[in-house]
Design a protein around this nucleic acid. Structure first.
Lengths: 189, 189
DNA sequence: ACGATTGTGGACCATGCAGTCCGTTTACGA
DNA sequence: TCGTAAACGGACTGCATGGTCCACAATCGT
């Protein structure tokens, strides 16, 4: 019963990273329907190895989404420092749209937050940050008063799915749509 | 060699209609991933019967999309009669958003227009009508000059996929987003 | 250096689904 | 009414894919 705690083996850690990276790429290219064999191959790893780090495909997807959400939250938190909340809001929207060029995973994956608590938590945090930024922009009269974080999610998510499914990689296009959405929500900036 | 032309059997015609109706319902509820067995069951028909009218699943989907596109084209053509093209444009957008509540098929199906010529044709016609309406709205200064029919498609399509996937049935919500998109494109009306 | 233990990979299994086959049934025309 | 050709339905096939198993290999603590 001497519970000797051994640290995780080096190859295991390395492979987990490789899998995540490969999954990001493959899902970005082919959507969430991409199959596990392809990811394993791209990662240069057996299929079973994936399942040692992620119990199901959904967990793998959620893992990626959690990372991206954390990134978005960081963006939002920084944006809160900006004097001009309207401009900051628009900037974040455009940045998110740009970042999602070729990455259709995150917003599509949010439906898993019912299944994966870790994801639900990350989502909660990001939403809260967005909420704060939007409140500030409204108080400065730079945002439609009835605009909600959910509006952002719905409009961006749809945009992402559609453009990504069409293999659209032109960054200017994504930036343009980011701005259109900002316009829709009445962000002056 | 006496080529006696017999008219199609009544049950065949009836079943084709039933299949289309069932497919519309099932796809609307579960998305295009819904499987053929379910559609057959819902239509009260054997699976093979579906394949007698539609050679592949894609053709079935395209069949539905063609109908809807024809409807949209009618809407657009009527809208062209309106004095105020800006208001008419907004009205059509909202109508399309409303009509797509619970029906995620049409815009998602457009990618099949490469495969099914009939669909490509219907799409072409609808796009042309939309183009005319938008040109008119621009000339009246009621629409952003850089707005394109493709913008409408991308924004609406995304919206549809996202809201429908979330089983959102509140019509007011769809109407609201239709208006948001109209705002994004600078439709004054 | 070496044994205990953790990790690996690819063959394997189970499942779900698009599409086909064929013996049976039904509508049409005379 | 009756013969025939068209239509039917559900069992069946083939395939793709998520997930598991286990004999073997790499790693870590001593």
């Amino acid at each position: 019963m001497t519970a000797v705690t051994r640290r995780k083996r080096a190859d295991a850690v390395r492979n987990r990273e490789r899998v995540l990276e490969a999954a990001r790429e493959v899902f970005a290219e082919g959507g969430l329907d991409a199959c596990m064999d392809v990811i394993a191959e791209r990662a240069g790893v057996g299929k079973a190895t994936i399942y040692r780090s992620f119990p199901t495909k959904e967990h793998l997807i959620a893992g990626i989404a959690v990372d991206r959400l954390a990134h978005v939250e960081r963006l939002l938190t920084e944006a809160l420092e900006d004097e001009d909340a309207g401009a900051a809001f628009r900037r974040v929207l455009v940045a998110m749209a740009e970042a999602n060029a070729g990455d259709r995973v995150m917003l599509e994956a949010l439906r898993l937050s019912a299944t994966v608590p870790e994801l639900a938590e990350a989502r909660q945090a990001a939403t809260a940050a967005l909420e704060r930024l939007m409140r500030r922009a409204k108080s400065q009269g730079r945002l439609r008063r009835d605009a909600t974080p959910d509006d952002v999610r719905v409009l961006l998510s749809g945009l992402t799915q559609t453009l990504a499914a069409e293999q659209q990689h032109d960054t200017r296009l994504w930036r343009r749509y980011g701005n259109l959405i900002a316009d829709a929500l009445g962000a002056v900036g």
